[in-house]
């Protein structure tokens, strides 16, 4: 793996102060795929993300680790527009997520704008969230047909390819309720990929699975990481998986990135005491 994938990066904010910003990949601002600027998210009096800054360049695989409640999942949910930030801006592929320009002014984003930006992202959930009233095939084809305007035949053809990839081609007419958790999660991954996202958000995708089903799902994700150009943001407690696929591991604590770097360094010789404590607790 290239050594420069995770590097400390210094830029200046509007006030001209230098600040350390977690950065994954290299390139100019124009190349950035995901950028968080001073993003703060609170639930009531609880600050889950505290003025968070980070950026990710295309094709990188980032794993977010940290104790529960440290805001990892919140980052994915903000990106997927399931939540709105209280402060700060999130930019995806150069376009702000929560605001749009209208008549030269920056205004809160309308549904149309949000949907345009959302096209870049796909998400796989902890609880799969397959649609129980649709067959496996329909789960995968519904959005490409309705959102991307694909023909039913084309969508079905692509869905079958994806099902083949996740090893469930023969289950296309089954309803999700008749599948095991591991199978459901593989369908959910195929469903997310069918939308051809640039970024795949993986939210603790194996946490709800029985232990013996975890390996199959992780192997599938390893394949996808290896063989596609897709950018991944991954919240997981599977540290060996994180080590395998990641270009960068970010350690979160109390709403901030307290340390980040290449997995070899993060798992081998972390600098922060908190990171060391956390890793010794989960490894």
């Amino acid at each position: 793996m290239p050594a420069d994938t995770a590097n400390a990066y210094t830029d200046t904010d509007a006030g001209g102060r230098a600040q350390g910003r977690a950065t994954v990949g290299t390139g100019t601002t124009a190349d950035e795929l995901i950028r968080f600027d001073r993003v703060t998210k609170r639930f009531g009096s609880n600050t889950v993300l505290d003025s968070l800054d980070f950026r990710v360049f295309p094709k990188k695989h980032v794993t977010l680790i940290g104790p529960s409640g440290s805001g990892k999942t919140t980052i994915l949910r903000l990106l997927m527009t399931l939540l709105k930030p209280d402060e700060g801006t999130i930019t995806v592929d150069g376009t702000p997520l929560s605001h749009e320009e209208r008549n030269g002014k920056l205004v809160p984003a309308g549904e149309k704008h949000v949907r345009e930006v959302r096209k870049n992202m796909g998400m796989v959930f902890q609880q799969f969230n397959l649609f129980p009233h649709m067959s496996v095939l329909r789960n995968i084809t519904e959005a490409p047909v309705q959102v991307l305007g694909m023909s039913r035949d084309e969508a079905a053809e692509r869905a079958l390819e994806l099902l083949d990839m996740v090893g469930l081609k023969d289950r296309s007419d089954t309803y999700p309720g008749r599948l095991s958790g591991g199978q459901q999660q593989r369908v959910a991954i195929a469903r997310a990929l069918a939308m051809r996202p640039k970024v795949l958000l993986l939210d603790e995708v194996t946490s709800a699975l029985d232990p013996e089903l975890v390996a199959g799902v992780l192997d599938l994700l390893r394949d996808i990481a290896r063989t596609t150009d897709i950018t991944m943001l991954c919240v997981t407690h599977e540290m060996s998986f994180a080590r395998d696929i990641s270009d960068c591991v970010m350690m979160f604590d109390e709403g901030k990135v307290i340390e980040f770097g290449h997995p070899e360094k993060m798992f081998g010789d972390p600098e922060q005491e908190r990171t060391r404590e956390f890793l010794s607790a989960v490894l």
């Binding site: 959302r118 969230n129 469903r191």
Partner: peptide
């Protein structure tokens, strides 16, 4: 209808009307 169903609809970028009509109401 579980929240996750709405969220999956958002994640697949279905517009609000379609989320209601194709995902929520059938369930």
């Amino acid at each position: 209808v579980p929240r996750g169903q709405h969220e999956a609809g958002v994640a697949l970028n279905l517009p609000p009307g379609q989320r209601l009509w194709r995902i929520v109401l059938p369930q």
